[in-house]
């Protein structure tokens, strides 16, 4: 048994939870996916320590917890830049590090992004609930006792014989926002908007409201969309943009419900959901309409890129 160790939370963070690809296969009985906010960063975090793609990581918002490594342990960070330090030395996202017993991981400031992923080689020893280790905070199950991590929690790693290469840096541009627009396809209720409102969606400047959380990002526009559109509840997904009765819009994020009763006017493409998840609050962006075919082309290229990155990394590690 190599590299099996543990880490402890020595100071609670704002919102640190165990997350994996999500609880899949239960949406028909109202059980949400509760996956990660930024699936690219999550993918990189697991890759760097040689984990399977669906291994659980810790997803952290700012300010994250302070973490003590109780044993020597390979770990990696990916996603937001929170100016991470091991003891008093700065460390980088996108690289694998070996923590020594007693090392303290802290995060000094929110430089960019909103969510960072911490992976450990082998993953965490946590029971599956309904085939997933991810946390459902709202109903209080899965992950670490169904709650966010708090001071005093000790997470044990699973044994791993992976020998990471701590010199390789893996960059994945999509884990950082690179443009000031999000690409969307139209949603099922888009056609119920007036022509003027449809155009406004692509003309307005938007920004993420401070009242946002992992269930939904509330989005402020130049004006509200007055409407009297009603619909019966129906399935929704991450990145669905709904029009609320008060005329505001919101984008559903990782902890969204399985169904919704608000008009689905737009749907963000997968790549830009991740970008929006990491997008700075109050910085403006625009919505750009693209076709389903274009959205699929972007996604397929993304999948290809990920596979290439994974192959190249594993080859270098040997």
């Amino acid at each position: 048994m190599e590299n099996a160790g543990s880490l402890s939370i020595i100071k609670s963070g704002l919102l640190d939870t165990i997350r994996d690809k999500g609880r899949l296969g239960f949406r028909s009985v109202g059980i949400p996916v509760n996956g990660v906010m930024d699936s690219s960063a999550y993918f990189i975090a697991n890759l760097l320590v040689g984990n399977a793609e669906k291994e659980a990581c810790i997803e952290m918002a700012f300010p994250p917890a302070h973490i003590r490594f109780n044993n020597n342990l390979f770990f990696a960070l990916a996603g937001a830049n929170f100016d991470a330090h091991i003891n008093n030395l700065p460390i980088q996202s996108g690289k694998c590090y070996q923590a020594k017993e007693g090392d303290i991981l802290t995060f000094k400031k929110q430089v960019s992004g909103n969510f960072i992923y911490l992976s450990v080689a082998g993953g965490f020893l946590i029971d599956d609930v309904l085939a997933s280790k991810t946390t459902n905070l709202k109903s209080g199950f899965g992950g670490w006792h169904g709650r966010k991590l708090m001071k005093g929690d000790t997470l044990v790693g699973k044994p791993s014989s992976f020998k990471p290469n701590t010199k390789i840096y893996v960059d994945y541009a999509h884990t950082r926002h690179t443009h000031s627009f999000i690409r969307c396809i139209t949603g099922p209720e888009f056609h119920l908007l007036s022509a003027q409102q449809q155009n406004a969606l692509f003309d307005f400047n938007f920004s993420i409201d401070k009242q946002s959380d992992t269930m939904a990002y509330r989005i402020n526009g130049d004006k509200i969309f007055q409407h009297e559109i009603s619909m019966v509840s129906s399935g929704v997904s991450m990145g669905t943009i709904q029009l609320l009765p008060d005329g505001n819009i919101m984008a559903l994020m990782s902890d969204h419900q399985t169904t919704g009763g608000y008009p689905r006017v737009l749907q963000i493409i997968q790549q830009d959901i991740r970008m929006l998840a990491q997008y700075p609050y109050q910085k403006t962006f625009q919505v750009k309409r693209i076709s389903l075919q274009e959205a699929i082309a972007v996604e397929e290229e993304d999948n290809l890129n990920r596979n290439n990155i994974a192959r190249a990394y594993l080859k270098m590690v040997g």
Binding site: L24, S28, S234
Partner: peptide, 13 residues
């Protein structure tokens, strides 16, 4: 992965 029935719809993930 999922089939989500609703009043007048079925969503396939």
């Amino acid at each position: 992965i999922d089939f989500v029935p609703a009043y007048h719809s079925l969503t396939i993930h």
